[in-house]
Amino acid sequence: MMWRRFRRSKLALIALFYVGVVVLIAICAPLLTSDPNNVDLASRLRPPDRTHRLGTDDLGRDVLARVIHGARVSLSVGFAATAISLIIGSFLGALAGYYGGAADWFVSRVIEVVLCFPFLLLVLAIVALFGPSFLTVMIALGLTSWTTEARFMRGEFLRIREMEFAQAARASGARDARIIFRHLLPNAIAPVLVSASFGVAAAILTESALSFLGLGVPPPTPTWGNILSTAQQHIDYAWWLALFPGVAIFLTVAAFNIIGDRVRDALDPRSE
């Protein structure tokens, strides 16, 4: 039913197809290109031509190979960070919504505190304090972005916890943990997944900003953000360095945002 409504949007299908292609490219990256870290100082900062379709960077590395390999970092950080925030957010949101009272009060106060911090500030602080690496970037993003998921999950739990199927489970003597995870969670997950799609988009955007600022996954690992920071140093000359990784970030982030938006529309009974 949801899929049928989602399918009606051509744009959403294109976005989904695009994400599929990028995931495939990221998985097959080593098969598709030469080594992205292959330094060739003789041909540094070359504009796009036959051998280097998207040009070369300041160390003569092939930009196409680096952009393709950059997809691996962006997607894996995006998905992993979102998975972390989904787990934390769903757990706390479910507790708050199911038990209400003191649990709800406490979780709501924690969310208020987290929301007071400017997102990028906190992420930068965590990454800088613990040293930039794939793991810290992922954890920093996950730890700071779970509040949306928590609020959605809390709302859903408040809505469904007194429904008949939940009462039936309770009447048949199921333990709280079983009611939460087996009965309520599967019925509450759909709106949370919408926010997860936006979450992947935001995580990819932030990861690239961190890389751009020099506090992301450290070089020589190619990321879309760190190609752009090289571009900044050669802004008066190497336009191809600035153009292609930016397009890659933009299209991927836009695709996840569009998918999230259309799934939300498909779930919303009021929209026609």
Partner: peptide
């Protein structure tokens, strides 16, 4: 709106400077 919202600001800054 969605497309605007998805543009990385540092990239836009680079292109504007360029």
């Amino acid at each position: 709106f969605f497309l605007l919202y998805s543009l990385p600001s540092f990239w836009v800054a680079l292109l504007l400077m360029e």
